[in-house]
Simulated scan of single mutants.
Amino acid sequence: MNRLRELRKSKGLTIEELSKELKSRGVNVSSSAIQKYEQNKRNPKIETLERLADYFRVSVDYLRGIDPYKVYVYYSSYGNRTFLVIAKSKKQANKILSNELRFDPYYKLSDFEFTTYPVDEAMIEEL
């Protein structure tokens, strides 16, 4: 979880400050737990990983060091409409699309095909 350390430092936070910030958002993670995550001595629960990823606005896979990219672009076509969604996960992309389509009964999310294109920060800025 060295990316956790990188992300924390990029925000200029100490371990204690990150713990307090997370607790203020309803995520009960002690500073000692964060330190163990950063030292790879302990793995966070998936719920904690998701909340950390949300806080830093990155994907869980990026946070875990599996993926070199922070977000994904989901490209979906349905009927005569095309959607390009920038999201951290397919779940988040579905949520964005469902908000877009909730007033249009013609479209069903189950009908969408998703193609994932990994992007880095420079590419996001261009979008």
Rank of each mutant, 00 (worst) to 15 (best):
K41G: 07
R102L: 10
A122F: 09
I34W: 00
E17Y: 01
Q35P: 00
L63P: 05
L22W: 01
E47P: 06
N94Y: 08
G26H: 11
D111G: 14
D104I: 15
K9I: 09
L109S: 12
Y37M: 02
P118T: 02
K23D: 08
D104P: 10
K11Q: 15
S77K: 12
L49A: 01
N40W: 03
S30E: 06
S59T: 05
S10Q: 11
K23Y: 08
I124D: 00
F83N: 12
S30L: 02
L127Q: 00
L84H: 08
Y37H: 05
Y62P: 02
A87N: 12
Q39S: 14
K70P: 00
Y72F: 13
I34H: 05
V60T: 05
T82Q: 12
E16H: 07
E17P: 00
K90R: 12
V71K: 13
G65V: 02
V85A: 06
R3C: 08
I66F: 04
E121Q: 08
R42T: 02
K9V: 11
K45C: 00
M123L: 10
F83L: 14
V58L: 07
N80V: 03
N99R: 15
R3Q: 13
G65Y: 04
Y75P: 01
Q39W: 04
R64Q: 14
N28Q: 12
R51K: 15
L109Q: 12
D120V: 02
L4R: 08
G12P: 07
L7G: 10
E126A: 10
G79D: 07
A33N: 10
L13T: 11
E38R: 06
K41M: 07
